[in-house]
Structure formats: C-alpha cells, structure tokens
Design a protein around this nucleic acid. Structure first.
Length: 645
DNA sequence: GTCCTGTGCA
DNA sequence: TGCACAGGAC
C-alpha cells in the first residue's frame, strides 16, 4: 500500500503493467467470386462482365466505403491501398481486384488498371488518408516539422493530387471523396477550394458537405466531410437523415466477455434489434449461432478498479486520486464509459493504442474488436486481416458502411436521372452582387492598398471598431509608418495617434507586431499564412484578409456579416465554419472568393443584409435568397418578420 | 502492445 | 470553457 502523499511518479512505478500479449494474426482467403489475380484472361473477362455502375475505391483501407457502395448497388472493380493487411481484408470481403502500393505517384496503379482492362468506371471514390488534417494530429505534425523530424512537404497534398490524377485518367461520371471535416478548415479553406477547383477544371460540378454518421443509422459521433463531383450538370441531392440508433442497438446482443478474451469464435444467441438483424445479414448458415472476433484487451488491475467506479457520463476527474495515472490538468476525459442509450464516440484508429474512450456500458473492459466493428456498422461476416491492433486500426479508419451506403444510394439516384443543364447558370449570384457593388461600394482608404503591411494595420484597427472611426487613425498611421521599420522608429508618435483616437489598447500590439516583422523577417511583411499567424495580434481573420486583399489569393472571409448573408441566402440555421465556406464556394463562382467578392459581401452585409430589418427591396441577390423567397411564400413568417416595422 | 501526453475549434 | 479526436517512446 502506498503512502497517501506518494507522488504521481511513485504511483506510476508501483503499478504492475499488464503483460504484453500479441494476438494471433488473422489470414483471410480471397472472396470466392473474385477473379484469380494470376489469371489475366479471367480478370479481363470479369471486368467486362461487371454489372451495374462500376466503382474504384482508392485509399480503400479495409473497405467500409466499398461495402457501403456495394450495398447501394455499385460494383467495386478494385480497391487500392498501401497497407497489405487492408488490401487483404478488401480482397476477402469486397472481392474484385486489389492493388497494393503507394499512391503518392499513381502512375503504376493506372498502368495496372490498363492491364486489367479497366478503361472506364462510373465512380472514383476514396478517403484520402486523413491523419494530417485531423484535429489533434495537425499541431503534432507542425511540431515535428519545426523540430526538423518531418519534412513540411508531407503527403497531405500529394495524395489528393494523386486522386485528381486518377480522376483525370479515368473520366468517371462521378467522384466521391471522404475526409475529416478539418480538411475544410485547413489553410482557412484554401486547400479544399483548390481541390474543388481542380475537379471543376476537369468538368465536374462539385458539392461538399459534412455528414454526421448518427444521422445515417450509425450509433456514433462521427462527422466526415464528403465532396461529390458530377458531370453533365447534374445536381447532387444529399441523403436525408434516417432514424438514429444507439450503442444498445449495435451491441446489446453480444455475449458477455471478460478482459483478455482471446477465443476467435464464441456462441451467439441471435440478434434482437433492427440494427443487429441488419448486421447479421449475410452471415453463413453454419455461423448462425457463432460470433467472431469478440476479442477483448486485458485490463490493468488499477484500471479495472477505476472502470468499476466509473458510471456512464462520469469523468476522469471524479476518480479517487490513487487511480489517476495521468495528469489531471490535461485529461478530464481520459476514460469514457459508453452509455447504452447514447452514441459512441468516434471509433478511431487510436483504438489500436488504448480503448479508454470506449469502456463497455456494463462490463469493466474496453470494446472488443467485434463491438468496435458493430459500432462502425460492419456486418458480422466481415472480418479483418492481421493482428488485433491492426484490426482495430482498420476498423477505426473506415467509413462506416451504413453511412457510405446512404451516400452511395444518393449517388445512384442522381446518376440514374438524366443530366440537365442547371436552371441558372453558375455565377448568377456573383455577377448580381458585383454589379450592385460597382455603384454601392463603401469607399475606405485601406481598400486602395495592396501592401500587406497596410492591410495588416487596417485589420488590427478595425477589430471590433466601426470603420468610420478607423479612417483618420489609419490615414495618420500610414503617413507616419508606411513600413514596419518606420513603425518601430516612430513608436511613441504612433502610440500618441492611436491614444488620441481611442484605440489605446491596440497601439502596443501594433508596435509589437512591427518589431517582430523587423526582427524576424527583416522588415518585410510575411506572405504566408503560418508566418502571419505567428505575429502578435494576428488571428485567422486578419491573416486571411492580408492573403485576400494584398496577395491575390482566394479565401472566404468568415465574419458575422458574411455568415449572416450565407445563412439567409442558403436557408441555413446553424452550421459550422466549414459549411459557410463551402456554400460560399458555390456562390463565388469559378473566380472564387477574391478581393472583389469579399468586399462586396462585406458591404452587402453592412448596407443591405443588415442583422435586423434587412433592406430586401434593394437587395441585388433576392433571386438566390432562400430567406427572401420563403418569406414570400410563407405570409405568416413575413408578418412576424415585418411586425417591428 | 502498452503507457503517457496532449491540441484545435466552436 | 468544453468537447472531440491525436501521436511518440519503448
């Protein structure tokens, strides 16, 4: 027994670790209907005879996306991935052809497709590896780049360029890309815009949206970005939300299993919920009373004690101190017990390391491999090649099959309709907006500059301040300090100017900023987003403003004004930044959100599309505005809105 | 395979 | 501030 005053270090040392146990590697035979990979004639015949719309799954992983698309009626001709076990899983479960190789350069893959006789497919789908874009991964990678461990030119852009090259080579009727939502926030949306631009350049009309898995029968908090590209002016209709399911719906029928349960096959009594019945579909008759891979991790004695004390919804912090091995100031959610009637947290590849976020609702252990697969909505006949930790990784990285199926069905519906040119040509909104703006633009001195330093000055002054108030300050500052160097030299005078005009708090910030530019960048205002964000007082908005107004790049400036406009025009209630950016991408047309577009949006928000009592009668874009249109057709809302006069 | 330490965005 | 999802060392 340890003394009550034992340090964290003492407690750690005293704890017996669970002995390392390496699970059995599972080997899977190829699907019985898959062509023999050694027999080229057979492969070509198989490709020729493929029915229904055909698809290719690149970066296929275990095949969650493939399975969903298959269930939606697509024939998956081939899956490609750089991970051997994933390709093995894909070949065994999905069938078709498998390509094992690095797709950073897709040349070899494209050659192989040609050899196989695959010259055309209806759909190219894929989940480009997402770790570089995801939340916790991003900063880690930045850290690694800074410390020189990793090259900044990592695979994150090459991989989607590969994807575009494959699309270009095969010219499919449709394209589907899956990724983590943070891809949309990367570079303030520029990366996603570039990706969509390159598809649009190839003749695809693109749409992007973040879908929540729990809206498509998957009992899990899991938001994923989907980008769809369609030829021939087709309009994609996103799948409608379905009835939600819970953890209970997914796993309540599985037999109780102790920690360290290693039996591959256990007796099974049968499904009880609709979801369980769905996930038992396709299980061979001989396995009707068996469940596979209900394999669990061992649990350390101290963790077992902690799990026992942890009710669903309770946090790590509430545990007695002797059971907290991890620093409490960082982790308040190190452990998480699932609740029967709730959603699971997102099943991630991290399950291969520890399962602390996924403690079984009743049993004092983390989720078994089968339970993780169930919560990802993999059917019970679906097994994963490799060692247990590798199986967890494949499950965590997969697109939930039922979510993929929902998107796949929506795609099939769209593809089966005749392509029609869109009713309004794209660009209507942009043209109308800019035409209005040529006569109605507000004229501010900072709108005439293309000097990054001047834009920066203006943005710092404008933060939470009315533009009219900023005009004299800005003009005086530009005269006094046309460059960061002169700002440092005239720091006292600059401070006086700003103080006299009531922007006192901002003065020191601006002088700091100038000093850093002089010291770190030789007096030249930096031109990359990272360097701009590193300056004191520069946030996302200011960095984007510099990039758009001074450097000719195309980024949507998301603030309360533009958000409000998009909200009204698109009829959205509440949505994340990514959503607004995505909608703005559509409205901004092929020229994108350049300086002209952003200025016009800012002015529209300030002059016409005001927070209260918008001047819809003078608005140039009512044709495209859902709020305006629906008010017209819903007189009750119009009264409610107009009641205040 | 296991343990420990985080970050980013709304 | 809370919530949702990471990676490295050994």
């Amino acid at each position: 027994m340890l003394a009550p005053d034992a340090t964290l270090e003492d407690r750690r040392r005293s704890r017996p670790a669970v002995p390392i146990y390496r699970g059995r590697r599972l080997t899977l035979a190829p699907h019985r209907r898959a062509p023999d990979p050694a027999n080229l004639l057979e492969i070509r015949r198989w490709v020729r005879q493929a029915r229904g719309p055909t698809a290719l799954d690149v970066f296929c992983g275990a095949g969650g996306l493939s399975l969903g698309l298959k269930d939606a009626g697509f024939t998956i001709l081939a899956g490609a991935d750089s991970d051997p076990a994933s390709v093995e899983t894909h070949l065994a479960t999905i069938g078709g052809l498998g390509y094992l190789g690095d797709l950073a350069d897709p040349g070899d893959f494209l050659e192989r497709l040609e050899v196989w006789g695959i010259e055309h497919v209806d759909l190219v789908a894929g989940g480009v590896p997402c770790q570089p874009f995801s939340r916790a991964g991003r900063s880690k990678i930045r850290h690694l780049v800074e410390s020189g461990v990793r090259s900044p030119f990592d695979a994150r852009t090459t991989l989607w360029r590969s994807f575009v090259r494959i699309v270009d080579a095969l010219q499919p009727r449709a394209v589907l890309l899956e990724n983590v939502p943070d891809l949309a926030a990367w570079e303030d949306g520029e990366l996603l815009n570039e990706f969509r631009d390159s598809l649009e350049d190839l003749g695809y009309r693109t749409a992007a949206r973040v879908l929540n898995a729990y809206e498509h029968r998957v009992p899990q908090h899991r938001a994923r970005l989907f980008v769809v590209g369609l030829r021939a002016g087709r309009e994609f209709k996103w799948p409608r939300p379905a009835k939600r399911t819970t953890v209970r719906d997914a796993i309540s029928d599985l037999p109780a299993a102790p920690p360290a349960q290693r039996e591959e096959r256990l007796d099974y009594a049968g499904p009880s919920t609709a979801l369980q019945k769905r996930l038992r579909r396709g299980v061979p008759r001989r396995d009707a009373d068996a469940i596979y891979d209900h394999i669990t991790r061992d649990v350390r004695p101290d963790d077992a004690e902690a799990f026992a004390l942890l009710a669903p919804g309770q946090t790590y912090k509430t545990l007695p101190e002797h059971l907290r091995r991890y620093r409490c100031d960082i982790f308040d959610d190190k452990y998480n017990r699932l609740s029967w009637d709730g959603l699971s947290r997102s099943i991630t590849a991290h399950m291969a390391r520890d399962g602390y976020w996924y403690i079984h609702p009743e049993q004092n252990r983390t989720l078994s491999i089968r339970e993780a697969a169930r919560i990802q909505t993999f059917p019970d006949w679906f097994r994963f090649a490799g060692e247990p930790s590798h199986q967890y990784r494949q499950i965590g990285n997969a697109v939930p099959p039922l979510l993929a199926e929902a998107v796949g069905r929506a795609l099939r519906r769209t593809l089966s309709t005749r392509g029609r040119p869109p009713q309004r040509s794209r660009g209507g909104f942009r043209e109308d907006l800019l035409r209005w703006h040529t006569k109605n633009a507000r004229n501010y001195p900072w709108r005439h500059t293309r000097d990054p330093w001047h834009v920066l000055l203006a943005e710092v002054c404008l933060h939470r301040t009315r533009a009219e108030q900023v005009v004299p300050v800005y003009e005086a500052l530009i005269r006094l300090a046309p460059s960061p160097t002169s700002m440092v030299e005239n720091a006292d005078t600059a401070r006086d100017i700003m103080r006299s005009l009531g922007l006192r708090g901002r003065a020191d910030l601006m002088i700091d900023m100038a000093r850093v530019i002089v010291e770190r960048h030789g007096g030249r205002t930096p031109e990359t987003r990272e360097e701009l964000l590193d300056l004191p007082g520069v946030g996302d908005y200011a960095a984007s403003a510099v990039v758009v107004f001074a450097l000719d790049r195309r980024v949507v400036l998301v603030d309360t004004n533009t958000t409000r406009i998009i909200q009204r025009v698109r009829g959205l209630e509440r949505a994340g930044h990514w959503h607004f950016r995505s909608e703005t991408y559509d409205l901004a047309d092929s020229k994108g959100a350049d300086a002209a577009f952003n200025y016009a949006m800012l002015d529209l928000g300030a002059l016409i599309c005001r927070p209260s009592q918008p001047l819809c009668s003078q608005c140039p874009v009512t044709k495209d505005c859902m709020a305006y249109q629906s008010r017209r057709y819903l007189p009750r809302q119009a009264q409610a809105q107009g009641g205040g006069r």
